[in-house]
């Protein structure tokens, strides 16, 4: 740092901007030196700095006050009240039953508890009744090989034809199973 190359503080406005750091001793050595040079030649700024330092001293030495003697007693009385009311809240609140917990949840959701249970049950019954895929199928049917399935169907149709030679129940049965071997023989 070449101290001789530093610019002098040209006017009082420039000096004013450096005063906050100067009075707190936070100004760099170079700026402090420049400001002191200005202050040596400017009585107005010098007076301002002096008064500012005196004001700060005055603030630092402000009289200290304290609370009244009964401050702690009053505070502890208030804290005791707070503790007592918190304790009352804890002890006076009975433990909720399962029914109250469920009712509480349904109240939060704004729905009545019993009707929603009935509704869920009804939907479940309807699903089982209306959706064929959900019906339970015998294990033999699902695990049986295609050949045995075909022979079972053919046997059933033959038995039906024998029982009702003029009816077309066997044909109806064949339409239900379009990819079966029986259909091929019926519509070659």
């Amino acid at each position: 740092m070449n101290i001789l190359n530093t610019k002098p503080i040209a006017n009082c406005n420039n000096a004013e901007t450096l005063l906050p750091q100067f009075v707190d001793g936070e100004l760099s050595a170079r700026d402090a030196w420049q400001l002191e040079k200005h202050l040596a030649n400017c009585r107005d700024c010098s007076l301002k700095v002096e008064q500012l330092k005196l004001t700060i001293d005055l603030l630092h030495d402000t009289a200290r006050l304290d609370t009244n003697d009964n401050f702690m007693a009053k505070l502890h009385a208030r804290l005791d009240d707070i503790d007592a009311s918190a304790s009352d809240t804890r002890t006076n609140t009975p433990r909720p039953s399962l029914r109250e917990i469920i009712t509480g949840y349904t109240r939060v959701l704004h729905v009545p508890g019993v009707p929603i249970g009935v509704a869920i049950g009804a939907v479940a019954v309807l699903m089982v009744a209306l959706i064929p895929g959900l019906k339970t199928t015998p294990a033999t049917q699902t695990t049986a090989k295609p050949d045995s399935h075909i022979s079972t169907v053919v046997e059933a149709q033959l038995a039906q034809t024998a029982a009702d030679p003029l009816g077309d129940a066997a044909a109806d049965q064949l339409v239900v199973h379009p990819d079966s071997a029986v259909q091929d023989s019926y519509n070659p």
Binding site: S46, Q51, L52
Partner: peptide, 13 residues
């Protein structure tokens, strides 16, 4: 604060 208290501050300058 300095401006308000200036009349009461005895400066050495």
């Amino acid at each position: 604060m300095r401006d308000k208290l200036a009349p009461y501050l005895q400066s050495s300058v």
